[in-house]
């Protein structure tokens, strides 16, 4: 049981939580994630640790509402408890002074990108962050990103904010303009696939943080497996970050759709039951 100390809305579908978790706050590093379960019969879902306060003994999570489990979590209020929370999981991001680093995030990937941006900046890199969203009201964490980046480029599909276009257009703009030593990308599998194709063309080493389906998060089940460089890897223990040029994004995208139909039906039932929307 972990107490929610603070809750805030970053947008109508994105919620910020500060949660009591003293041991994790002490040991976590950028790139680590936790598994969270709401209710006795809840699902275990992975969420990146966005920040931590070892003194206060708390960690921060930024959650985007997409299906039943994230919606149940987002419905919790300050003072209430998250039933189960375990971590920190995964390997920490490989942080060093690379030089110029482009951090590109979109959709579900923006929240997990934040701690990486912060750590890259702290390590003395020149950080250029590219935030992609479908439209203006879906752009999240811009302020926090600006505080930790040398430059932020916002891209929207419909041009309602920032520049019009998809994330790769933003990256290419930077690649044409200056030398980039490293690229980090987090987002939907399709997005990361195109980022990887682009940076490969420009020969820029690229790390992708993969958000596969997970169950235990400790290497026990294999639900999170992906093919990297022709070998099967478990995202929860071997990752979540991998060399983007080696990842089979096609397979990853396919596997993310494993429960699509079941999840859609579950969400409909949930909305009916709770009478929301």
């Amino acid at each position: 049981m972990n107490k929610i100390l603070k809750k805030a809305f970053f947008s109508s579908n994105v919620v910020y939580f500060e949660v009591e978790a003293p041991l994790i706050a002490r040991s976590r590093k950028a790139g680590h994630f936790v598994l969270v379960k709401v209710g006795t019969h809840g699902e275990r879902i992975p969420l990146t640790i966005a920040a931590s306060d070892p003194v206060k003994g708390s960690i921060s999570l930024v959650v985007q509402r997409v299906g039943v489990s994230s919606t149940k979590l987002c419905a919790l209020n300050e003072g209430e408890y998250i039933t189960d929370l375990v971590g920190p999981l995964g390997k920490a991001t490989h942080i060093e002074q690379f030089g110029t680093v482009v951090c590109a995030g979109g959709g579900v990937g923006v929240a997990p990108l934040l701690p990486i941006v912060e750590a890259m900046k702290k390590a003395g890199n020149r950080v250029i962050t590219i935030l992609a969203a479908r439209s203006k009201d879906l752009v999240i964490l811009e302020e926090q990103m600006r505080a930790n980046s040398d430059e932020v480029i916002v891209m929207t599909d419909d041009g309602t904010y920032g520049k019009k276009g998809i994330v790769t257009a933003g990256i290419e703009e930077v690649l044409l303009r200056e030398h980039v030593d490293m690229c980090v990308t987090v987002g939907p599998a399709v997005m990361m696939k195109y980022v990887a194709l682009l940076t490969k063309k420009y020969n820029v080493p690229t790390m992708a943080s993969l958000n596969t389906i997970m169950v235990d998060g400790t290497g026990m089940c294999g639900a999170c497996r992906v093919t990297v460089g022709g070998k099967t890897k478990f995202v929860c223990i071997d990752g979540p970050e991998f060399d983007a040029h080696q990842v089979d994004f096609y397979e990853m995208q396919m596997r993310l759709g494993s429960y699509k139909e079941i999840e859609r039906v579950a969400m409909e039932h949930y909305l009916e039951k709770t009478g929301s929307n």
């Binding site: 089940c221 497996r225 093919t227 099967t232 397979e251 396919m254 494993s258």
Partner: peptide
């Protein structure tokens, strides 16, 4: 082996 519907007994 990574097709949807193929999984470990643990999973």
């Amino acid at each position: 082996e990574n097709l949807i519907g193929v999984m470990s007994s643990n999973e």
